[in-house]
């Protein structure tokens, strides 16, 4: 598996107090732990279990994921922006790996 790479869509600009829509997608098989390989052995679970969005250090949105979230997990949610700043997105893998992305937004 190539290292999961996040894709994030955040508007570059917004007006003060605007509620913006954020979309994120990350490549990951989300192995459910219920499938079997060709020899009939259970393939161990390995999923992204947590996704988090913060704005300048403050939590905006978080999601706990179970194996029923589809492969290449997609998240769409909102954020209210009052000032320019940086969004930080974090995905936590069952194996402890952390995948991150940062996006700046200018509020006029």
């Amino acid at each position: 598996m190539a290292t999961p790479k996040p894709r994030v869509k955040v508007p570059k600009k917004a007006s003060k107090g605007e509620v913006i829509t954020i979309k994120t997608l990350i490549s990951h098989p989300m192995e459910s732990g219920q499938r079997k390989d060709k020899e009939g052995n259970l393939i161990p679970r390995q999923i992204i279990n947590t996704f988090k969005c913060e704005f300048d250090g403050q939590l905006v949105f978080e999601c706990d994921m179970d194996p029923a979230v589809s492969a290449n997990p997609y998240m769409e949610f909102n954020a209210k922006v009052e000032n320019s700043g940086t969004f930080k997105f974090t995905w936590v893998d069952d194996d402890g790996s952390i995948y991150e992305s940062e996006n700046k937004i200018t509020v006029e």
């Binding site: 509620v19 939590l59 994921m65 589809s70 909102n78 954020a79």
Partner: peptide, 21 residues
């Protein structure tokens, strides 16, 4: 269990979308 979304006042709106099995 599928997922749990956590919102804050910074979320602006309590809306979320994802894709599930």
């Amino acid at each position: 269990a599928v997922a749990t979304f956590h919102f804050t006042a910074l979320s602006g709106a309590a809306e979320a979308k994802t894709r599930i099995r």
